[in-house]
Amino acid sequence: MATRATFDGHIAGFGTAEGTRVVVGRWLSSPLGAFTDVMVERSDGTRLLLATRDDVADLVAGTYRFDAVHVVPVGLRADEARRRWRLRAGPLTADLTLGSRTRVGHLLAAVPQNRAIAPLVATVTDPFARLLLEGVRTRGSAGRGRREWYTAGDQHAITAVRALWGSADLGALRLVVPPVRFGFSSVPSTPSVTRVRTTVELTDR
């Protein structure tokens, strides 16, 4: 028997000059409550999950692929007025500056946001995402026989980042190139924060 879980929030994706690429999930509403998780692909290709709790780690690691999973303190403070995100996640420190709405963000305003039809909307928009955004998919198969759909409602550019791994500076903001390899879809190559609804079909397998 399958049930569907819905996660509402934001996904931020950015690359660094050192080669590390980062995906931040800021979930305002989910079956696990509000939480933030961080997926990191280091310059050598190692894929890491930084999760704030065991239940978050179990769910995310069961849906995506990682080489290592770490349960560590994860905190994200969003200053909407100043357009800043301040992330602390285990060894990762990242301060993000957000810019204006992207062209994709303006287009997303026309996408229906009704939760009940989100998987249908994701199915319809998938061919356009594949065509316009390299590596991006809005529906696909995830881990443990799960299916997943993404529907987006807005997007803003990330214009600057200051990121450290431990005491090592990861360097200036770069594109998310090559695409990250956690699941069937990458984030957009252009650093951005996307307002998103993720629907995951959980099975009893």
Rank of each mutant, 00 (worst) to 15 (best):
residue 1 M to L: 13
residue 1 M to P: 11
residue 2 A to V: 12
residue 5 A to C: 11
residue 5 A to K: 12
residue 6 T to S: 15
residue 6 T to K: 10
residue 6 T to W: 13
residue 7 F to V: 02
residue 11 I to Q: 10
residue 12 A to E: 09
residue 12 A to S: 15
residue 12 A to F: 06
residue 13 G to C: 02
residue 13 G to S: 04
residue 15 G to K: 00
residue 16 T to L: 04
residue 17 A to K: 13
residue 20 T to L: 09
residue 23 V to I: 13
residue 24 V to H: 07
residue 25 G to Q: 11
residue 27 W to S: 03
residue 28 L to I: 13
residue 28 L to H: 14
residue 29 S to R: 15
residue 34 A to D: 09
residue 36 T to W: 00
residue 38 V to T: 01
residue 42 R to A: 14
residue 43 S to R: 14
residue 43 S to K: 10
residue 43 S to Y: 08
residue 45 G to F: 05
residue 45 G to P: 01
residue 47 R to W: 10
residue 55 D to C: 12
residue 55 D to T: 12
residue 55 D to A: 14
residue 55 D to L: 14
residue 57 A to T: 01
residue 58 D to P: 00
residue 59 L to C: 11
residue 62 G to E: 00
residue 64 Y to K: 13
residue 65 R to K: 12
residue 67 D to R: 02
residue 68 A to F: 04
residue 68 A to I: 01
residue 68 A to V: 10
residue 69 V to D: 07
residue 69 V to R: 08
residue 70 H to Y: 11
residue 70 H to V: 01
residue 72 V to K: 04
residue 75 G to V: 02
residue 76 L to R: 03
residue 78 A to H: 15
residue 78 A to Y: 15
residue 78 A to Q: 12
residue 81 A to S: 15
residue 83 R to V: 13
residue 85 W to D: 10
residue 87 L to M: 04
residue 88 R to C: 06
residue 89 A to C: 07
residue 90 G to S: 07
residue 91 P to Q: 04
residue 95 D to H: 13
residue 97 T to Q: 14
residue 98 L to W: 01
residue 102 T to H: 06
residue 104 V to I: 13
residue 105 G to K: 00
residue 105 G to F: 02
residue 106 H to D: 04
residue 106 H to K: 09
residue 107 L to N: 00
residue 108 L to M: 12
residue 110 A to G: 05
residue 113 Q to T: 15
residue 113 Q to V: 13
residue 115 R to K: 15
residue 115 R to Y: 08
residue 117 I to C: 06
residue 118 A to P: 08
residue 120 L to F: 15
residue 122 A to G: 06
residue 124 V to R: 06
residue 127 P to G: 08
residue 130 R to L: 04
residue 133 L to F: 12
residue 136 V to R: 10
residue 137 R to T: 10
residue 137 R to Q: 12
residue 139 R to Y: 07
residue 139 R to M: 12
residue 140 G to F: 10
residue 141 S to P: 10
residue 141 S to G: 14
residue 142 A to M: 12
residue 142 A to T: 02
residue 143 G to S: 02
residue 143 G to Q: 04
residue 146 R to D: 08
residue 146 R to Q: 13
residue 146 R to I: 09
residue 147 R to E: 13
residue 151 T to D: 06
residue 153 G to T: 05
residue 153 G to Y: 02
residue 155 Q to Y: 05
residue 156 H to Y: 15
residue 157 A to D: 11
residue 158 I to F: 08
residue 161 V to R: 08
residue 162 R to N: 04
residue 162 R to K: 03
residue 163 A to L: 13
residue 166 G to L: 06
residue 167 S to G: 11
residue 167 S to L: 14
residue 171 G to P: 03
residue 171 G to Q: 05
residue 171 G to R: 03
residue 172 A to Y: 01
residue 172 A to D: 14
residue 176 V to D: 00
residue 177 V to C: 06
residue 180 V to T: 12
residue 181 R to G: 03
residue 185 S to Q: 08
residue 187 V to N: 03
residue 188 P to L: 02
residue 188 P to V: 07
residue 188 P to H: 02
residue 191 P to C: 05
residue 193 V to L: 14
residue 195 R to A: 15
residue 195 R to N: 11
residue 196 V to E: 10
residue 197 R to V: 01
residue 200 V to W: 11
residue 203 T to Y: 05
residue 203 T to F: 03
residue 203 T to M: 01
residue 204 D to M: 00
residue 205 R to N: 09
